[in-house]
Computed example of a mutant assay.
Amino acid sequence: MSSTSPEAARNEAHAQLVRALELLWNGHTPAGRGPKPGLTVETIVDVAITVADADGVDALSMRRIARELGVGTMTLYRYVPDKNVLLALVLDRILAPSGPSPQGPRTWRATLESDAWSGRELYLRHPWLLQVNMSRPTLGPGSVAGLEQTMAGLRDLPMSDKEKINVVTAVDGFVTGAVRQQVYYEQIAEESGLDDQAFWGAQLPFMEAAMQSGEYPVMATLGADAFDGTWEATFEVGLNCLLDGLELRAEQRR
């Protein structure tokens, strides 16, 4: 049983947050005496992202990153104080806009649609992000720049600032939910070793008997291609339904 008091835990969490913010916003000068080592925070973050992409977020240990960099763990601590701060740096890098700010005015719908598809691509490229609790993000220059672009694109949305932030959060919730379903589907297929033909083929005789029983009359009338949709098509339908509803509310406001 841990002997750490709630107050001590809160103080450590606060200190950890401040350390992360200092690194994100003010950069870093390695602590300690001696010759300046040949590392940078940017290089450390690059390696951390490579490790997470290869082996998941659980592989992000200071020992593992130091080994990949060919340095001692204590050398790494001169740049990044702990794993949680490292993760904050990694997330801010990944969530930063990947290109220049869009030129010219954008409609709110085009902005949210672009953000949603870009977010989907981001989560599919880094599926371990779905395991990270980002409900209370450490706001660094990368994530703030991304939100700046989004809010600039929502200028023509007739809602209050609070409502706009709620909309951004709702769209991100849709994106993460849709991507999580796809990622989990692909993961279970790989882990089980069963492709779709083998998996659904095993269930086919049981489903045929169930449909012929008369107990599932609506299911029995579904078309043969009812379950042939793609992940992209499912995402598009869901996103359009969300944005169509938002557009109706916007028109009512006007």
Rank of each mutant, 00 (worst) to 15 (best):
G32I: 06
L86T: 06
F235S: 07
G146C: 04
G72C: 08
V167P: 07
P35G: 11
R109C: 08
C241Q: 13
N166D: 12
W108N: 08
K162L: 09
R67K: 09
A210R: 15
E7N: 06
A210K: 08
P137R: 09
R33H: 02
D115S: 11
F174D: 13
E251C: 03
V18P: 00
P102K: 01
R253W: 06
E22V: 06
R10E: 10
G146N: 04
V237D: 14
R64K: 12
V218E: 14
Y185L: 05
V179M: 10
A178D: 09
N84R: 12
H126E: 10
P30G: 01
G153E: 05
R180F: 02
D82C: 15
D92S: 00
V132D: 09
V179P: 11
L154V: 05
Q16K: 02
S61M: 11
A20R: 03
M74H: 14
E232W: 03
P158K: 05
D53V: 07
M62D: 10
L112Q: 10
M159F: 10
S118P: 01
P37Q: 08
S135M: 02
E121L: 03
S5N: 14
A170Y: 00
V218Q: 14
L91S: 07
A178K: 07
P205Y: 11
R10I: 06
A170W: 00
G70V: 09
G34P: 01
G104W: 11
E121P: 01
V168K: 03
D55A: 10
L129R: 01
V167S: 05
D172H: 12
V175Y: 02
Q149I: 06
D46W: 11
V183F: 05
L95H: 09
V41Q: 07
E247A: 13
R78A: 03
M159N: 00
L147V: 12
E113G: 05
G70N: 13
A233T: 06
E208W: 07
M211C: 08
S98P: 01
C241F: 10
A66I: 02
V218C: 10
V57F: 01
L76W: 02
S5A: 14
R67A: 15
T4A: 13
F235K: 02
K36A: 03
D172K: 12
S213K: 10
V85T: 15
A88G: 07
